[in-house]
């Protein structure tokens, strides 16, 4: 069984994000980067499926990102993935989801696959689109926000649970398939020390857009990020208190009219 796991390097959710002066990205100095949290579930599920399927099963990590992303790729390899493709190209800054999916589709098509696992969304831009577009481009079924995954004994089908409002939805899908993973799917393992040493010898194939046969950034004209802006500073909060609620409402209306001048 050939399993692909999509991986993204993102700033730690606890890191304070500062936008650069031009508004084209974040200030990276002093920022801690991690594997996108949901991608950890994808890696773990890939490894579990590999262990279950046995034989010459293989987990290949596909990551698009700057040179520094080798660290998160190496972490996935240390957890147990077999090899990786790292797409790094200086012309790729802030690629939109269509661009990312176009490039990933090419890589994955070249690699071949039975299952693709990825996170349900990246915790930095929260687009949650790449896997949907990818499913369309590869013309395969897609199951999103998985909280349980079970492969049939003949490895031709899978049953996937999705947590929905008030219950679980069970979906049956044929393979090949792309599954986006949610918290609760599994407990991602930690990279062990022997795993870290083994990962040093595993192959990371580094590819530029030209290596993949693109003469320009694919899908570049569809949508692009214009600018990143910091959140407006939150205004001051005032609590209107009175013994009786109607009095408080009256006072609130007065303030909105006379002080804030919004009504």
């Amino acid at each position: 069984m050939k399993i692909i796991v999509l991986l993204k390097r993102v700033p730690d959710s606890e890191t304070k994000i500062l936008i650069n002066q031009e508004g084209t990205g974040i200030r990276e100095d002093g920022v801690k980067f991690i594997i996108n949290t949901y991608d950890e579930y994808a890696i773990e599920e890939g490894l579990l499926m590999k262990e279950k399927a046995g034989g010459d099963s293989k987990v290949t990590v596909v990551c698009m990102g700057s040179d520094e992303a080798t660290e998160v790729i190496r972490t996935a390899l240390a957890m147990g993935a077999d090899d990786a493709v790292h797409i790094a190209d200086a012309t790729l800054s802030n690629p939109g989801p269509f661009t990312t999916a176009s490039i990933m589709a090419k890589v994955i098509g070249d690699e071949g696959f039975d299952i693709i696992f990825c996170g349900k969304q990246a915790i930095d831009d929260d687009m949650a689109q790449v896997h949907c577009i990818l499913a369309e481009m590869l013309d395969i079924p897609q199951v999103s926000v998985a909280t349980a995954f079970e492969l049939s004994d003949d490895a031709a089908k899978a049953t996937v649970s999705r947590r929905i409002e008030g219950g679980d939805e069970k979906v049956e899908t044929s393979l090949p398939v792309i599954v986006s993973c949610d918290k609760g799917l599994n407990d991602p393992r930690y990279a062990s020390l022997p795993g870290i040493m083994k990962a040093k010898k595993k192959e990371i194939k580094k590819k530029s857009l030209a290596d993949l046969g693109f003469s320009e950034v694919p899908g570049g004209g569809r949508s692009r990020v214009l600018k990143w802006l910091p959140l407006p500073k939150g205004g001051e909060c005032r609590i209107v208190e009175a013994e009786e609620t109607p009095d408080a409402v009256r006072e609130l209306v007065r303030l909105l009219r006379e002080e804030a001048k919004v009504i």
Partner: peptide
């Protein structure tokens, strides 16, 4: 954890990839 300023880049200067992956893990 608010460790970014002291737990991130600055801590890791000159460390190998192996050491960075180890620290995170």
């Amino acid at each position: 954890m608010d460790t970014c300023q002291y737990g991130g880049g600055e801590i890791d200067f000159g460390l190998s990839e192996e050491q960075k992956v180890l620290r995170h893990s």
